[in-house]
Each structure stands twice: as C-alpha cells, then as structure tokens.
C-alpha cells in the first residue's frame, strides 16, 4: 500500500490541475508552496505514523499547535476535511530521500486530545509537552504530560487566541521607602 500510495502522489505531481482529491499514505494531500501536506484524521494518526516510520520518515522534526479561533477561514484544507479550532502540525523528515512531509491534524475544541507519538518518535516528548502547555491539547499515552515552559501552577494556556497576551498586572504592597 505504501509504494502504491507513494506512486500515486508522485504521479499526481505532473497533473496538479486534476480536480480529483489527491491522497498519500491514505490521507488527503495538499500542497502549500511546493511543500507536501497531509490531512489525516485523528483516528488515522497512530497508524499513519507507523506507515511513515516504515517508509523512512525516521524523525519528527517539529510538532506544534495552532489555534484557529479568530482566523477568517483556511483555504488550504481539502474538501473532505472539516476545519476544527485547533490544529496539531507535525513535520517529518526522511533523511534518505531528503524529503519532508507535514501533517495537519484537526483537533476539536471540546475534545482537545490526540494520541501521543512518543512510542515511535521519542523525540516528541518535549514538543508534546510544549503543545500541551501552550494550547491545552492533551496527548494520550504521554508518560509525563506536565507544563514545560510555564510555572507549574499557571492558569490557562498562553498561546490560545482567547488568552490575554498582555502583561499580568503586578501590584506593590507595603514597599517601604528604604532608599
């Protein structure tokens, strides 16, 4: 299946104008400025990672989140994928073929969770913790899902669009004039 799908993807490159939805590794494929982007569903994700790992994508180079709460509308999604508030963006790299692949996973706001990639890609440990810290997306199966950048008792997730970016007001109390 892997080889077929890869050939499909390669074959479609020549006829990018065809309206039929492209697929690669069983997930809808789009192109963003020449970069390959896959849009798997959340359920597909663990299996897809296994397929990709076997296909030579040995490193997850980056994993991060995006909060599309106030975005006026995404044009990059294929028709079969329903937009949700959060996206988890995963960048994989195939060193042997010098190829990159990006996964964009739609995560609904009322159930912000995703399977952890840590079994196959132990390097996602810190990145998933950061995404949890900044967006509140939980990763099932992560052994140590705690805040990584913010203090432990911090309320809220700072990179969410409904989180106030401004400073936290600090008040002085009883500072004696000692100078």
């Amino acid at each position: 299946m892997t080889d077929e799908a890869a050939q499909d993807g390669a074959g479609a490159e020549g006829s990018a104008a065809t309206p039929a939805p492209e697929e690669l590794f069983g997930a809808p494929l789009t192109r963003s400025g020449g970069q390959l982007v896959l849009h798997p569903s959340r359920e597909q994700y663990p299996l897809l990672l296994r397929t990709l790992h076997e296909a030579g994508y040995l490193s997850i180079i980056d994993l991060t989140g995006v909060d599309y709460l106030t975005h006026p509308g995404r044009s990059g999604l294929p028709a079969s994928v329903a937009p949700e508030r959060f996206e988890v963006v995963v960048n994989l790299i195939n060193h042997r073929e010098r190829a990159r692949l990006r996964l964009r996973l739609q995560i609904p706001a009322d159930d912000a969770r995703l399977a952890s990639a840590i079994d196959l890609y132990p390097g996602t440990e810190a990145m998933e913790r950061e995404t949890f810290d900044m967006f509140g997306i939980e990763f099932d199966g992560h052994p140590d899902l705690t805040r990584i950048l913010m203090p432990e008792d911090w309320p809220g997730h700072p990179l969410r669009k409904d989180y106030d970016p401004g400073r936290i007001p600090v008040q002085f109390k009883g500072a004696p004039a000692n100078r």
């Binding site: 936290i168 007001p169 600090v170 008040q171 109390k173 009883g174 500072a175 000692n178």
Partner: peptide, 20 residues
C-alpha cells in the same frame, strides 16, 4: 548603612489571574 536587614520588603500579588 542602607537597608537594615529587612530586604526590600516588597510583597507582590498577581491580580486578575483566576485562582491565584
């Protein structure tokens, strides 16, 4: 002698953060 043993004596409180 400037600060007779009481540090700066500043108390900081976070305002507005829920549950703080």
């Amino acid at each position: 002698t400037r600060r007779p043993g009481h540090g700066a004596g500043i108390v900081i409180e976070q305002v507005g953060a829920p549950g703080s």
